[in-house]
Every structure is written in C-alpha cells, then in structure tokens.
Design a protein around this nucleic acid. Structure first.
Length: 871
DNA sequence: CGTCTCACG
DNA sequence: ACGTACGTGAGACGG
C-alpha cells in the first residue's frame, strides 16, 4: 500500500480554530484557543488517516513574489488580531516539541509550499492529504491528492474531503479549471479582483464550457450573457492578472527531505510539559505518562487492623514531612444523607514509597483513626493536605504551625480559576494524572501523595513569585481563623425572622393585588420578560429596549419612570419586598442549625482580588442601606450573656490608595482626620472647606469611589446622572488636585501590561489577561482591574492580618468572646459581657495596626444587642 | 444552565 | 462606534 502524508496549512487552520473556538487563556494570560483547536483538528486527522509523514506549512510574513507583482491588489492584508498573533510562535513551539516538521520559506506563501510538496509527494507515489480552511487549495486536488476542509460545527469538527472528482462534482469544473474560475469571479478574501460583473454562477458556466480563460477569450464573442462577453474583453488584463494571483505554485524551489517529515512519537515529554503550561487538560490524557504516575499505584498499601495502623501513624509522626487525605465512608451511608458522610479512613504519605491507606474497621473506628491523624499532625515536621479547613471538621490537627494546604497555595499562584482540585495540582506540579475512575481509597492515596510531594514545589513557586510570606504569615493562619469563625457561627432568632417574613408576606400580597388590578391582568411580576411586556407594550411606557431577551426592567430604568407612574413605583416596592422575603427571610431561615446558629462558609479561594467570600448563606450581603431591609439585622443576636461588638474600617480602600500612591495632598488630607469627601470637594472645586456644598461633596465622594473602581468617565456619569463630558472634567480636576494618584494608576496599568499581573502591598498577585485583548471593552476592563485590584486586594490583605491578630489575642487571653462575621471591612465579635472593653481594645488595636501606612487606619466601633444596634 | 435582578463591601 | 464602573452570591425565570 502507498505511503501517506498529511500536509497542513498552518495559518489557515490556526485561523479557523481561532474563530471557531471561544476564547481560552492559560494562567499566564496567554490566549490558547487557536492552538487548542489546531491540535484537535490535527489529532483527529492523524487518528483517522494514520499517515507515515506529516508536515505543517506556514507563511513567512514578508511580501511574497506574487504579492510584489501586483502590490496594489495584494498589499492590503488585514493585520492579525493580537490574540491570534501571539499564538503563532507558541503553535510552532508545540509542533517542534511534538517532533513535527514545519516548513516555511521567505518569499513563498504556504499555498505554494503545499502545492509544491503535494505535487512532489504524489510523484513519489504517495497518497497526499492537504488540510486547509481555504478553498483556493481545491486546485491542487488530484486522484491521489485529497483536499480536506475542516468545519467547526457545534458538537465537533466535520471535514469535507475533495479528490479531483469531488471538485468536479461540486463545482462542475476540474481542479485546474478552478483557477480559471477564480480568475473570472475573483476572491475578495484573497484580494483577487477577478473580472467585474462576473460572479460565481457566470464564471462556472463559462469555464465549464471553455475550460480556460484563454479559450474563453478567443471565443469571447460567443459568451452567453452579453454582459460577460463585454466584461471579459474590456478587462482581459484583469483576468490574466487574477489568474496569476490565483495560481498556486507547484514547482517552487524548496529543499525538503521527506525523512524529516516522518512521524515518530508525537506525545513527547517536551510536548507534555508544554501542554501543561497551556493547560490543555483533556489532551494530556493522550500521553503515556510513566514514572511518578506509578509511584502511587505501585507502592500504596491498604492497612487494616489496629496494630499495623498504629505502626504507620508512628512512622509518619517520626517522618519529617507528611501528606494526608481523608476519605468518606461510602458504604454505611444512606443516600439521603450523603452530604453528612462519615470518614471511612485516611491516607498517609511520608516518602516516595511510603503511601498507606488506613481503613476504619470494627476494631479501629474512624474516630480513633482521625484522632491519631491529629496526633501525627502535631508530631510531624510538616503536615500537608488539601482543603484543610474542610478536613478540620473531621479532625483537629495537633499543631497549626506546621500545616500546609495545597489548595490555598494553588489559589495564590493563580487566583482566577473557578475551582481548585488536588488533581489539578498533581497534574500541574507533578505531571501526575489521577484516574477519574479510581476508587475512593486509591484517590485518597493519590491525594496524600500529591500533598506530600507537591508541597516543596508549591513553596518554591510561592517563593519565586514573592508570595511565600503572604502564604505562610497570612493565608495559612487565616485558614484556622476562618475555620473557627465558621464553627462559631452566628445566632439568629428563628421566631423573629419568621415574623419578619410574615409581615413582608402581608405587604407583598396587598401590592400584588393592586398591581394586578391596575394592569388589568394577572401575570408573574418576578418575570422580567412578562413585566417588560406589561410595562412597555400594554401600558405603552417609553424607555426602550436594552437586553438581548427583551426590555430591561432593572431598577435604574424603572426609577426614572416611577415619579410619573405610581404603578412603576409599586413594582419597585414589590421587587424590594419579594427580594427581602425570598433571599433573606426565607433564605436565611433555611440555614439556622439545631444550635440556633447559622454556620455559613467563608471561602478563601473564590475572589480574584484576595477578598474572602461568603456562601451558604451569603452573610456579606445582608441589607443595610434601606431601613426595611436593615431590620433583618435585628434577628442576628449574641448569645445570652454576650454583646455584639462591631468594628469597621473607615474608608480603608481610599487610605490604601493614599498610601500606595504616595500622593502628598491625599495623605495630608487624611492626616487632618476630617471629612475626606469634603476635603476632596474643597480641593477639587477650589472652595473653602466650610463652604463646600452638599452637591460638591456628593460629587467628590462619587469620584473617590470611582477612582477606587478604576475610573471611567462613563461609569462616573452613570453614577452621578451627568454627561460623560462633565464626568471627564471632574476626573481631570481630580487628577490635577492629586497628581500622585494619576501617576500611580497609570503605573498600575503599565505594570500590568508589562508583567501581565498586578500586586498588592503584601505581594499578592492578580493576573490581568484582558489587557492583551484587541477588543476595546475587554481591554478597558483590564485597565480598570489593574487599577482596582491592588487597592481592593491590599485592603483585603490588611483585614486578613487583622482577623488573624484578633483571633490570636482572643485565644491567647483565653477569652470566651469570638469572631462571628467578616464583611470585607467589618468584623463582628460576639463578646462576653465581662470582656467587652478588652474586646474593643483588641479589635481597635489589631485592626488599626494590621499595617503601618503613611496614613492612619481608622476603625469605627459600636456595641449592641443585635447586629442592627451594633452597626 | 444562562440571564436578569439585586443585596452587600 | 463600541460598552464598562471594582469585587461578590442567591433567587427566580425560562429554554
């Protein structure tokens, strides 16, 4: 059987993949979608065809022979968008790593390379497949040269195949006649002019009848549509030129040694490393990874019984470094209570070949195993796990100082991911692939091994990125502070909450009735779609469309209509009440535990900036701005014998900005310790401090906020309901007043552009991949992120330091008071009534001294018998 | 499961 | 001409 070669049109397939696949970026901010798509297409074809040889052709971006001849027509090629351009060299790197032959030659287009190679290979008796997205190449089709055009459709790529006969069938002309057809009809995408007024239909008819433009020209008078006849005679020179442009060269002078195109193993170690960097997870499965992968499978042992288990724990304790994982008992759990599954045992690793799975049995219960685990943690040199905070609901590590959480490390190294798993860490740090199907015990062994093995690597990366101290001194201690806070929970009066909900229900029902009556029909007020139709069609209000699915009924739209239309005001009120009832009254009630407290989760690996997030329920968005909503805070109460002490930072972000920018004016303004917005207004509007009007102050405040968010004239104009021009003037004035701020913000963007990330005062990094986008909106977003993240992130760092300090002091002094909530710039402590003054002192002290800035950190504090009172 | 809306800092 | 204020989470709707 004849040997096979596959020839790929590099740029064309890369281009196809780029536009066919949604944007992907790796953690370095490198766009990868085109490379990913290219590889998928290539692998699919290799799989199908199993060729002996493979070569990828690229254009060299210099004017080529054919370009030069008719520079006017071929000169204006659109520049490639940045996201695609940056992928080209990486694509070549990938191919090289896979040992795939690349061919490119200055002065030749990929088409010509492909044409020449396909001809030569065919002559050498081979079967040739040419892969391209470009139909131009159809002219190369023969009985042994197959042109394959991939189409990215939903649900995979389909490939259209063309031998010479297929071209004939589909287009009614032979492959070589295809050139003549192009010469007549032209091709806008390739800047081939063609003959005016001749399109695809006419060209096809003419060439089918006369086979070449030369022959057609000789019979020009007979040509069917008289218009075409005239055009061809008048524009014969265009036709000739177009034919030259459209003809792919098949005898270019290139050196090509077929033996270099031989396909060896393309899944090389080098390629694996590169794929990892590009984060092509599902392509990694195609590699045959040997080595570390077997460490776990080959060496783990299942330990049953008390004595052997105790021996392992003992050996682990004496080992310097220990990795551990807890696995669930899947056998003795009713499916209904799966979420409350008990531990089935633990896996331990303390050496390359020391991997053990210790299972609970009758003579050794899970409780005992977990207790031993805590003791082992206390005695080991280092103790590594994943999701330590979650694991701590099963056991108590005897020492918090030597603990390591690989998930937290992974988060710091790339805070943009939506989830973090030990499998990802194993793959990224150890090139270790964990089988999805592995049973729980085996998975736990992998997890323990990964915890043990990846720890030094992760620490080294944290060191390299300047985040080791952040990790060791802030994030790891915070794990325990958050754990304690979750365990503490916050007391919520269930009965009062229900009463509040009932009161809302009455009002909601009343409003509902009125709304149905006034609109003349019963509809779902909660459905923006239905509501939009009622308001803007049935009732004919003006205030046009906005969203893709219909009319916008967002509050800011409705608020503009409300003064004129009491009906709209009722909708807004209904919305407000419905939200309070469903999200807060009913929503919170569902989370009250048997101890009368809500134990929400405080998550450490969610936000891109370093803030903590709160879920199940979200306790960081309990209403406060509107009185009716604020009332909910009355049900958050301290235990008998306790009082709430609430402490919040005053304008921490602006103070961070003052410090980080070093702007003398703003720093001095803060050292005055007066109303900062008024000072800003006074300086920006050149008005004496005590003559600043309310409007001026309000505007200055909005600008201050805007600066923190990464100011844009559009955003500010929206916020203040002014024109963009006015907003621009405010911003300009602001920057004139505080020139240091402008320099700081510009620097942040510049640094992000250069390095690809921004940092906080404590070294926390946030990558900003959006800055390399060619899309204006995306890029602008990146700029705002670059301005905002260092500020928001530094404030988050400071609060974390404060929390750790507060927790530490409360514990050190053996106090009964406890931290129950964190709301970004606010801490809520449930203080024992004998400890109130001490708690206040600790809060003030730890919060104000969490960081030493050029401006003082100020804390406002209140006490009360509910969160409502204490705020 | 994506979109819209809205609660917080 | 475009189309955004930064960071979150949850509930409701509707395909």
């Amino acid at each position: 059987m004849a040997e096979k070669i596959v020839l790929i049109d590099g740029h064309s397939i890369l281009n196809r993949a780029f536009f066919g696949i949604p944007d992907l970026t790796n953690s370095e901010g490198l766009h990868t979608n085109a490379i990913y798509g290219f590889l998928n297409i290539m692998l699919k074809i290799l799989d199908e065809e199993k060729p002996e040889y493979l070569t990828v052709a690229f254009d060299v971006h210099a004017p080529t022979f054919r370009h030069e001849m008719y520079a006017d027509y071929k000169g204006t090629r659109k520049p490639m968008v940045e996201e695609l351009r940056q992928q080209v060299p990486v694509m070549k790197e990938v191919l090289q790593a896979m040992g795939i032959r690349i061919i490119e030659k200055a002065g030749l287009e990929a088409d010509d390379l492909l044409g020449t190679l396909s001809r030569r290979c065919e002559e050498a008796g081979m079967e040739v497949s040419v892969i391209s997205g470009d139909r131009d190449l159809l002219q190369l089709a023969t009985d042994h040269v197959k042109i394959r055009i991939p189409k990215t459709k939903r649900g995979g790529t389909e490939i259209e195949d063309y031998y010479a006969a297929d071209v004939q069938e589909k287009y009614g002309v032979t492959p070589s006649e295809f050139i003549d057809m192009k010469a007549l009809m032209g091709d806008a995408s390739d800047n081939i002019p063609g003959v005016p007024s001749i399109g695809e239909k006419t060209a096809s008819k003419i060439i089918a009848a006369y086979h070449s433009i030369e022959n057609a020209y000789e019979h020009a008078d007979e040509l069917k549509p008289p218009r075409a006849s005239k055009a061809l005679k008048e524009h014969w020179d265009m036709a000739v030129m177009s034919k030259t442009l459209a003809t792919i060269c098949v005898d270019a002078d290139i050196e090509y040694d077929i033996s270099q195109a031989k396909i060896e193993n393309i899944f090389t170690q080098e390629a694996y490393t590169l794929f990892q960097r590009l984060q092509f997870k599902n392509l990694l499965g195609k590699f045959d990874v040997t080595g570390p992968a077997n460490a776990v499978e080959d060496h783990f042992r299942i330990i049953r019984g008390r004595e052997p288990a105790e021996e392992i724990f003992d050996r682990a304790s004496r080992a310097g470094e220990v990795g551990a994982a807890i696995f669930k008992d899947t056998e003795n759990v009713l499916p209904l209570f799966a979420s409350q599954a008990q531990a089935g045992g633990v896996a331990l690793c303390f050496g390359e070949e020391e991997i053990f799975c210790i299972c609970a049995e009758e003579d050794l219960t899970a409780e005992e195993i977990l207790e031993k685990l805590g003791e082992t943690a206390a005695r080991a040199g280092s103790f590594s796990m994943f999701r330590l905070k979650e694991a701590m609901s099963f056991f108590t590590p005897g020492n918090r100082e030597n603990c390591f959480d690989g998930i937290i490390a992974a988060y710091l190294l790339n805070p943009l991911k939506s989830d973090y798993t030990f499998e990802d860490v194993a793959r990224e740090q150890l090139s270790l692939l964990v089988e999805d199907k592995a049973e729980d015990q085996v998975k736990a062994c992998y997890e323990a091994y990964t915890a043990w093995k990846a720890r030094p690597l992760l620490l080294e990366k944290l060191q390299e990125t300047g985040m080791l101290r952040l990790f060791e001194e802030i994030e790891m201690p915070l794990v325990f502070a958050l754990f304690d806070m979750e365990q503490n929970g916050v007391k919520v009066e269930a009965a009062e909450l229900k009463e509040y909900g009932d009161r809302l229900a009455v009002q909601i029902e009343k409003l509902e009735k009125e709304i149905y009556e006034e609109s003349g029909e019963v509809f779902n007020i909660n459905s923006p779609k239905q509501l939009g139709v009622i308001l803007f069609e049935k009732m004919g209000l003006k205030g046009g469309k906005k969203t893709k699915t219909g009319y916008s009924t967002a509050a800011d739209v409705l608020e503009k209509l409300a003064p004129e239309h009491p009906f709209v005001a009722k909708i807004l009120e209904y919305r407000q009440l419905a939200k309070l009832k469903s999200t807060y009254a009913d929503g919170l009630a569902a989370f009250i535990g048997e101890d009368g407290r809500i134990h929400g989760k405080f998550n450490q690996t969610i936000t891109a900036t370093g803030r903590i997030s709160s879920t199940e329920p979200n306790l960081q968005n309990i209403p406060v701005r509107m009185e009716l909503g604020r009332l909910i805070r009355k049900v958050f109460v301290p235990e008998d014998g306790y009082v709430f002490v609430d402490a919040d930072y005053s304008q921490i972000e602006l103070r961070v900005l003052a410090h980080c920018s070093g702007d003398r004016q703003l720093i001095e303004a803060y050292q005055e310790e007066k109303d900062i917005h008024r000072i800003t207004a006074s300086q920006v509007f050149h008005t004496p401090f005590d003559q600043v009007t309310d409007l001026q102050r309000r505007n200055a405040k909005a600008v201050n906020f805007g600066i923190v968010y990464g100011i844009s004239s559009f955003g500010l104009s929206q916020d203040l309901s002014i024109t963009r021009k006015e907003a621009s003037q405010y911003i300009e004035q602001y920057f004139k007043t505080y020139p240091g701020i402008k320099v700081f913000l510009d620097n942040a963007v510049a640094q992000a552009k250069e390095m690809g990330y921004v940092t906080t005062l404590f070294g926390r990094r946030r990558p900003v991949p959006e800055l390399s986008s060619s899309n204006f909106a995306q890029r602008s977003f990146g700029e705002r992120v670059a301005m905002n993240s260092p500020i928001q992130g530094t404030a988050a760092d400071i609060m974390k330091i404060a929390m750790i300090g507060v927790e530490r002091r409360l514990k050190e002094n053996h106090m009964r008071s406890r931290l129950v909530l964190q709301v970004h710039d606010e801490l809520l402590v449930e203080a024992h009534e004998t400890e109130i003054e001490e708690v206040k002192k600790i809060l003030k002290d730890e919060m104000e001294h969490a960081a030493s800035l050029e401006v003082p950190l100020e804390v406002d504090m209140h006490t009360g018998m509910s969160w409502y009172e204490a705020k």
